[in-house]
């Protein structure tokens, strides 16, 4: 599976990391894959969890030492509905 979009979020902090990932996911078709480069810590912990909460799938989350110390790579597949949860 080839990621449709690559996004390096290592220069950003919360909440911009998830905002950018969320926008990138919203631009994909259901099933398409977004590849993220993340820093260890907040981004690695929160982005996969937030993505799953919104119906996306975490295909892979692994260290990426070739990208530098503390780098992680995540592959997220856009969920089928593609709907952003609405207010109650």
């Amino acid at each position: 599976m080839i990621p449709a979009v690559h996004l390096d979020l290592r220069a950003h902090a919360c909440p911009i990391t998830w905002v950018k990932a969320r926008i990138a996911l919203s631009r994909l078709a259901p099933g398409e894959v977004l590849e993220l480069l993340l820093r260890d810590g907040e981004a690695r912990e929160n982005i996969p969890r937030s993505a799953e909460e919104e119906g996306h799938e975490v295909l892979r989350l692994a260290p990426a030492p070739e990208e530098g110390p503390g780098a992680w790579r995540a592959w997220l597949a856009r969920g089928a509905s593609g709907e952003v949860p609405s207010w109650p």
């Binding site: 909440p15 998830w18 905002v19 969320r22 926008i23 919203s26 631009r27 952003v84 949860p85 609405s86 207010w87």
Partner: peptide, 10 residues
Amino acid sequence: LLLPGMGEAS
């Protein structure tokens, strides 16, 4: 942009 129901399109 993080609020439920909101996003880039909104």
